[in-house]
Design a protein around this nucleic acid. Sequence first.
DNA 1: TACCGCGTCGGCGAAGTATC
DNA 2: GATACTTCGCCGACGCGGTA
Length: 338
Amino acid sequence: MADKKRELRELKDAAEVARLQELSVYERDDMGFANSKLIQATFPYRDTGERQWTSTNGGMSVTITALSRKHGLPYGTYPRLLMIWLTGKVVENAHSFDPEDPARRKIFFGNHLSTFMEELGIEARYGSHTDFKGNVVESNSMRLAEQIRRVFNLNINIESLYELEDKAVESYTNTLISQNLELYWDKHSSPDQYSLLDSYVVLSEEFFDFLKSRPVPVDLGVLRKLKSSAMALDLYVWLTHRAFYARRPFIVPVPALMEQFGTSLDPDDSGDRRIFMKNMRKAVKKMHKVWPETSEELKTGEKKLEVLPRGKGLRVFPMNPSVPPKKSSRTKKPRRRG
DNA sequence: TACCGCGTCGGCGAAGTATC
DNA sequence: GATACTTCGCCGACGCGGTA
């Protein structure tokens, strides 16, 4: 019985992957956006119980701080999907509204939580129950509602150190994500307030401009296939951006990867580094499956995306973007740079 | 000493099914 | 058909033994 179920799931999975590869992102109407700066820093994978989280990438570090006493830091896959949905909405509003119109910063969630969840690629489930150990198990709709509260009660601090001609530049940006979050739950609807009744968030001016600048196209179909793994989501979005702009192959050492991704493991601990890379191998395998170019072999036998043995890190060769420019062919070779 | 492979655990998310 | 409850599977994390 279990084997049969697994078999059916694998068949379904294979059909979905085949569809991803047969149809372009435009034919599937699956294009979304991520922000190029937020790609380089992520949310934690689990509830850390802390009120602050920092991730570092080279000269840039991003610190998120929970502002609500009641709701802590966002974690897991939902806030990641939420940020991609939000970036898409911002890009859309930036094009359809007058740049001076404050209404462009007002983002509606829609009338129903289930519709909103569908937009994120999550099937709506409701209610909660107590498991045999007495723990309360919340449905995904309740978990998403909690992550919405957490994401929109954050402050983001970005610190960058870089060189510009003969100057060393320090840059500090502090921004609230939202200026105002209004969630209207329908009390007459069934137990856990399923109707959102035109709930909305008003993004802060700074955060709206931040998301609007340098959006990176991502394939929502690929994201849906990866959505059960926060690490795989991070890897895909990061790779989409990083591999395309790379001029030559590069290796990211394990501690650097750990500082950037959402793990709470210690980069200075060899055991933790090993655990992290084991998980990274799994994420890379998923990537090979849903984004075939990452598993392409070069004449040397090296794959374009590969975890190196003996804890050397992750090696990446330049690749086409996951979402190619509309006019170009999907099989186009990476452009030559430098 | 560092890395790898595997088993286990608790948490999270998805899916099946019952109920209204 | 929508909602509520239950179970299952996958994930990250942890621990341990084996290997180079």
